[in-house]
Design a binder for these strands. Structure first.
Lengths: 349, 349
DNA sequence: CTGAAAGCGCTTACAG
DNA sequence: CTGAAAGCGCTTACAG
């Protein structure tokens, strides 16, 4: 017992394979009666055109690919991707497309590319380009870069990360804080090559704001700590920071998840937020406003990012030759988790 | 400028197309030298075998399909799927597979099936079978049913939902609660046809526990409220319940997300949990233990569910003819959000 | 070690 | 309105 093909349906219905194809793809070309007969046989035999054969023929798979920097389980641990996928999913819905999650193959994004049967890729979290962009270009596979350092002539979506981080650091500085810990998520496996992409931009933004008051990332009192992007890792790091004699009066995180962990740690250490400690997040995920105190954070619309990226990809696939490049803005959202510095307060001016 | 094919590489390297194929798939069949030359040309031209053509030929796509009951954005709004995808993703990682998210096409899961180029499907949240199972079977597409009422002879993964809900309801009853609101997520679009799948099993479990103390789902004091599965919807529903004169002393939810919303509502209404109100969740998602008070809940390993489903699918694809059926167990996790009923306490015995 | 040929299952001009 | 034929891009026995 094997799968029905156009041929078996044609034989059963007493028509040619062409007629079977027309019944599914171009009904006007056969009589209504013939079509009915064919469709009935197809139904009976459980036939539908083989999707792969169809894709080969029409040159389209009706699938968008999402090229991931890490295995699926690791990527999804960060709620960021949940939101991003929702944005991409909106476009899939509108266009009747499916979405192929494409994790690295044998550890390499590059290797994964040629195996994915998709009409194009959204490339996410490409921190260091080790040939991915060139490979995609030479293969003439449409793609969009998200949150990378996109070269000229490549559709891309970015966020004003530098500005966003400068804003929140400035906010904290204006509140008088001078012992500040920056809690960043780790750069990917390519950290050795230096900071790239959004992480680099955020660090630059922090540095910029610090310099406006005569400080910098390497000034005394300013710490930079890198941890995996999980609530537990945020907790641990902040618990350690808070145990120090000269503990920071403000924790500026690079992700709401980390900030939530910071809030947990402060609560368990009996340290009042924002009275004794200010905490800021980044992203403004839904949990940020469910937290108590509610998180001061930098809003970026992750969902919009996914949506725009998918839109760009769809138009690249459709043959739109121009290479859109959109920069989404960020907004500082001041809520209850930040307040005046408890002691290091400096006189205005 | 078009995409390189095996033919163009063959011409450039001065060999046959067969040799090009061998260079990629069966190196032993050509000389090392020839292979090097071919690979160099391929690299230069940006050639790699067309994934769709390859899939047609080999009869495998190296992709697992996840057949979704709703559009991607709606599905992902529930963190449940995030965990489920992580479990599936583990298997993808191990097997070197990609994962195709397949939302309904034109509103129908059934329509989506024939368009997806995958080696098999994980069918999730199929509440009412309107032909999906038969379609998959007649097409000889391997598949696994998750959280459905699986017919005989179909690989499936389920959870002891009846037991799980019976346990938590019994826990609340033992604490003396008699005015209890059950907060359920809505049945899908097929609600008109009655409860199915896990929802039906959970309701049966609740009823079972209630009957052991002479109550039932329709007894006075027992309310059943259905809402969308979001924190906000949980909040709204519980806020309304708490505003009533004869407000419940316990809220038994069908999802941690709803329970989190219940906690929010209680806090905003100034009602102490667990002093004045007990709240229970379901799933034991990570947030359940981050909440304050920590949530009493029913643990099910959603991740394990995804992993087992993917494992079953992989073996079905590999040709394993037997149809495994696994029932994952649940565990009642008692934490701080439940306590003795404040007034309706009844004497023991 | 290499190449001509058939075939994977379909679609679509093209000729009747 | 229908059918024989070529082609999508590849893989793989098979014969040299």
């Amino acid at each position: 017992m094997t799968r029905a093909t156009a041929r078996s349906v044609a034989e059963a219905a007493g028509v040619s394979r062409t007629a079977v194809s027309f019944a599914f793809n171009d009904p006007a070309k056969i009589s209504a009666d013939t079509r009915r007969r064919i469709l009935a046989e197809a139904e009976r035999l459980g036939y539908s055109p083989h999707p792969v054969a169809r894709a080969l023929n029409r040159g389209t798979t009706d699938a968008l690919g999402l090229l991931l920097p890490q295995p699926i389980p690791e990527v999804l641990e960060n709620p960021y991707y949940n939101l991003f996928l929702q944005g991409v999913g909106q476009v899939c819905q509108r266009e009747g497309l499916t979405l192929l999650l494409t994790p690295p193959l044998r550890g390499s994004m590059l290797t994964a590319i040629p195996y994915a049967a998709v009409d194009g890729f959204i490339v996410s979290g490409l921190e260091v380009d080790r040939g991915e962009v060139a490979a995609l270009q030479r293969r003439h596979v449409p793609f969009v870069l998200v949150d990378s350092d996109a070269p000229e002539g490549v559709p891309s979506v970015e966020v004003t990360d530098r500005q966003g981080m400068a804003d929140v650091v400035q906010h904290v500085l204006e509140l008088g804080h001078r012992r500040i810990a920056l809690l960043s998520f780790e750069a990917g496996p390519d950290r050795a090559t230096g900071y790239r992409g959004p992480l680099a931009r955020r660090l630059a933004g922090a540095d910029e704001a610090l310099r406006r008051v005569g400080l910098s990332l390497s000034a005394p009192g300013i710490d930079l700590v890198e941890v995996p992007c999980t609530r537990g890792a945020g907790y641990d790091a902040v618990a350690a920071l808070l145990a120090r004699a000269d503990r920071p009066t403000a924790i500026v995180t690079f992700s709401d998840i980390l900030a939530l962990g910071a809030l947990d740690a402060a609560r368990d250490a009996g340290i009042d937020v924002p009275g004794e400690l200010s905490v800021t997040g980044y992203d403004d995920q839904p949990d940020a406003s469910y937290a108590r105190p509610q998180l001061t954070t930098v809003r970026q619309s992750i969902e919009a990012k996914g949506r725009v990226a998918a839109d760009f990809l769809v138009s690249a696939i459709t043959g739109d030759a121009h290479h859109p490049h959109q920069v989404l803005h960020t907004t500082l959202i001041v809520r209850g988790s930040t307040g005046p510095a408890p002691d290091d307060r400096i006189p205005a001016g």
